[in-house]
Write a protein that binds this DNA or RNA. Structure first.
Lengths: 111, 111
DNA sequence: ATACTTAAGTATCAAAACGATACTATTGGA
DNA sequence: TCCAATAGTATCGTTTTGATACTTAAGTAT
C-alpha cells in the first residue's frame, strides 16, 4: 500500500500560497524560533527586505492567521509581531528543512 | 541549553532561494512523491502554470541539483524530469507541511 | 513657541518577475 | 505535400517587488 503520492498530500497550492513567495518563510522562521519581535527588529534581522515589502508580507501572514500583530498606543510607535499557535505549528517543517540542508552540505564538500 | 533560535537554523535565505518562488514547491512535490514525469504531464498536473514558467522553474531546479532532466532523441520530443536524491531528501519536510495542514483543518472547522 | 527625534508606516515611481499568446523544430504518416 | 505531436523559444503586456522619499505624533531640547 503505497500512500506517497502528491495527490494524497494535495493541499500544496493552498499551503504554498500561504508560505510561498520570497520572504514569508524567512519572516516566519524568525518569529517561530526567536519569538516576538518589533517591526524594526525584523527589519534588522532580514536586511535585504524593504520596509514596504516587510509591511505587506506581515499583513498577508496576519490575514492567514500565522502571525499576530499588537499595536501599542505610544509615540514613537511600537508594534510587536509574533507567530500564532498555528504559525508555531510549522516548527517541525522548518526543522526538517534545516536538517535537509545540513545533510546536503555534509555530502557535497568535506567540512 | 536553548538551541531553537533562527540564527542556529540560519541557512534560511539560501534554502528559501532554492525552493521559494511561486511554483517550485508544487513542482518538487509532484516529482518527489509521484516520481518521474514528462514535461507535458507536469503541465497537466499544474494547470495554472504557463509553459514558459514551467520551463524556467525546471531549469532553476536543475541548476540547484534538485531535479534531473533526461532528453530522449525522439520525434516528437520526449523529456523526462525527476527529483534527484537531494530533492527526494525534502520528502520529510513536505510530510511535515502536510500534517500541519491537516491539524490546522481539524482545529478550525469540525469535519 | 519652534524645531528635532524616533518608529512604523504610506506614496510614488522604476525594475524585475510572471502570464498570454504566438511561433519553431523535427519526422513519421496520410 | 501537408499535418500531427511534443517541448520548447520569442515577444509583449500585466503584476509584484524594490528604492526612495514623505507622513504622523508626542516628547525633548532650544
Amino acid at each position: 500500500m503505497q500512500d506517497d503520492t502528491s495527490s494524497n498530500l494535495c493541499p500544496a497550492p493552498l499551503v504554498f500560497a500561504m508560505i510561498g513567495g520570497k520572504w514569508k518563510l524567512s519572516i516566519l522562521q524568525i518569529l517561530i524560533f526567536d519569538g516576538t519581535k518589533r517591526f524594526g527588529e525584523l527589519r534588522k534581522a532580514i536586511p535585504e527586505i524593504t520596509q514596504t515589502m516587510l509591511t505587506k508580507q506581515l499583513r498577508d501572514l496576519e490575514c492567514d492567521g500565522l502571525v499576530k500583530r499588537v499595536v501599542y498606543a505610544e509615540v514613537p510607535p511600537k508594534v510587536e509581531y509574533s507567530a500564532t499557535e498555528d504559525g508555531v505549528g510549522l516548527m517541525p517543517a522548518f526543522k526538517e528543512m534545516h536538517s535537509w540542508w545540513e545533510t546536503r552540505k555534509r555530502s557535497s564538500n568535506a567540512p
